[in-house]
């Protein structure tokens, strides 16, 4: 079945099996392996991408459901000039990662939080990150980074 969509600004058209998950489509078809699959059960958030501007778990979405949509992955979050997205810059500034496996999902969810809730405080960010799991338990730096980016978004 044909699926035609825009991924990181680029028009893409492929024939896929209906059962192909969006995460598999991104990783296996497009070789965009920045999107990680951690739990494959909609809990860990490592596979989060933006679908028409909103954070979704790409392991729990068929690629055919994204037909006609705009998808942004971690590879497409920075500006075309290479300038980091404010959330990416904040993750670097606050050392918001340890092993890095959850980082793409954390950054994509962080960008979604900052978009929806400029000025989000520590408690809000922790609540909003309930669908993202860091097995290193490195939440402190992650939360600090998103709170910082959210503060910048308000000012």
């Amino acid at each position: 079945m044909n699926v035609t969509l825009t991924v990181n600004g680029q028009a893409i058209s492929r024939d896929v099996e209906p059962r192909m998950l969006l995460a598999e489509f991104l990783r296996d078809e497009l070789r965009l392996t920045g999107t990680h699959v951690g739990c494959d059960t909609t809990q860990c958030g490592c596979c989060i991408v933006h679908l028409d501007g909103e954070a979704v778990k790409s392991c729990t979405l068929f690629a055919v459901q994204a037909d006609g949509s705009k998808v942004t992955t971690i590879e497409g979050l920075a500006g075309t000039d290479g300038a980091l997205h404010p959330v990416q810059a904040a993750f670097r500034e606050h050392h918001g990662l340890q092993c890095g496996f959850c980082t793409p999902g954390m950054v994509m969810m962080g960008a979604d939080i900052v978009r929806r809730i400029p000025g989000a405080d520590d408690e809000t960010v922790r609540h909003e990150l309930e669908g993202n799991i860091c097995r290193c338990t490195g939440y402190q730096g992650i939360v600090e980074a998103i709170v910082d980016a959210a503060a910048q978004a308000r000012s």
């Binding site: 958030g45 778990k57 309930e130």
Partner: peptide, 9 residues
């Protein structure tokens, strides 16, 4: 319900 990404679907 769930988490923000789940609530988007």
């Amino acid at each position: 319900i769930g988490d923000p990404a789940v609530r988007h679907r």
